[in-house]
C-alpha cells in the first residue's frame, strides 16, 4: 500500500487537524467517491454484526444480505478510486490497510450496533438516502459510478422497503415495540444532518458533474421517511441541537477505531495472507 498519497495533507491552521484541501480532476472524483464507498463499507461491517444477533434467524439472513449488497457496492468503487487517484490501490488496500483518519464515511454508519429499533431507524434513513443518491448518480459523468449506481439502485430500494416494513410493524405494534422504535428514531437524529452536508469535496464534485450534491437529496429523503414514520404511527423527532460532523474529513467518533480493529485485524496480522 502506498501510504503517503492517502494521508491527509499537512494542516495549515494549528490545533485543527482536519484535511480541508480540495483536489481537482480525477483526484476530486476519487475523493468524493471515497465517501460513497466508505459509507457502504462501514455500514456493511456493522450490519454483518447482526448475524446470530437479530431477533429471528430470517433477520440474521436479511441483514447479512443487505450487508453483502453494500459490500459489493464498495468493492465496485474501491479499485476505480485507486485508479483515479493514481495510487493503484486495490479493494483490500482500501478496506484493510487504511487508518481511521483516512476514512471518509459519515458518523451514522459507524455507530455501534444497539437496539433493533435503532438499527431499523438507521437502515430506514440510510437506505432512503442511498435510493436518492444512486438515482442521481446514474447521470454522473463518471461512467463507473453511474454503472455501480444503476446496479445498486435496485438493491437499496429493496433494503428501504425491508426497513419500511419493520418500522411500520414495530411502530404500529405493541406498546413496547412502539416505544423502542420511537427511541430508535430519536437516537439516529443527531447523525442525519451530516448526510446532507455540502462539504467542499462533495460540492466541487457535484459542480464537476461527477457527484451528487448532498443538500439536494435532503427534501426527497425526508419526504420518503416521513411517509413511513406516519404510517407507523410514530413521530419524526425535531432536529437535535448536537449534530455529528467531520466524517467526510476523516474525523470520526469513538466506535470507529473499534470497528476498524475488528475488521482489519486478520489482514494486518497476516499481511498478504490468502486462502
Amino acid at each position: 500500500m502506498n501510504d503517503t498519497t492517502s494521508r491527509p495533507a499537512p494542516v495549515s491552521s494549528p490545533g485543527r487537524a482536519v484535511d480541508t484541501s480540495v483536489p481537482t480532476g480525477d483526484r476530486l472524483t476519487a475523493a468524493y467517491l471515497l465517501g460513497v464507498a466508505d459509507d457502504a463499507m462501514v455500514y456493511a461491517q456493522r450490519l454483518a454484526e447482526w448475524l446470530t444477533n437479530a431477533p429471528q434467524i430470517e433477520e440474521d439472513m436479511a441483514l447479512a444480505n443487505v450487508s453483502l449488497d453494500l459490500l459489493g457496492q464498495a468493492r465496485g468503487l474501491y479499485p476505480h478510486i485507486g485508479g483515479l487517484d493514481g495510487t493503484g490501490r486495490s479493494e483490500d488496500d482500501f478496506a484493510m490497510l487504511r487508518d481511521e483518519r483516512q476514512w471518509r464515511n459519515v458518523h451514522l454508519v459507524e455507530q455501534e450496533r444497539a437496539d433493533f429499533g435503532f438499527e431499523m431507524a438507521r437502515l430506514l434513513w440510510f437506505s432512503a438516502y442511498q435510493v436518492e443518491l444512486y438515482a442521481g448518480a446514474t447521470h454522473s459523468a463518471d461512467t463507473t459510478f453511474a454503472a455501480v449506481a444503476a446496479k445498486a439502485g435496485k438493491e437499496v430500494s429493496y433494503h428501504h422497503d425491508h426497513a419500511r416494513q419493520w418500522v411500520v410493524r414495530l411502530g404500529d405494534g405493541t406498546e413496547e415495540s412502539h416505544r423502542r422504535m420511537q427511541a430508535g428514531l430519536h437516537a439516529v437524529q443527531p447523525y442525519l444532518a451530516e448526510l446532507f452536508d455540502d462539504d467542499p469535496v462533495s460540492r466541487a464534485a457535484a459542480e464537476a458533474g461527477a457527484g451528487v450534491l448532498p443538500s439536494s437529496l435532503h427534501d426527497v429523503v425526508v419526504t420518503r421517511v416521513t411517509g413511513v414514520v406516519g404510517e407507523a404511527t410514530l413521530e419524526l423527532p425535531s432536529d437535535s441541537r448536537w449534530r455529528s460532523r467531520g466524517g467526510r474529513q476523516g474525523v470520526h467518533s469513538r466506535p470507529m477505531g473499534h470497528l476498524l480493529a475488528e475488521m482489519q485485524h486478520l489482514a494486518r496480522s497476516h499481511p498478504g495472507a490468502t486462502w
Binding site: S67, L68, D69, L70, L71, G72, Q73, R75, G76, V148, K151, A152, E155
Partner: peptide, 8 residues
C-alpha cells in the same frame, strides 16, 4: 454480469 453487487 452479477445478479447482485455483492454476489459471492
Amino acid at each position: 454480469t452479477p445478479t447482485y453487487s455483492g454476489c459471492p
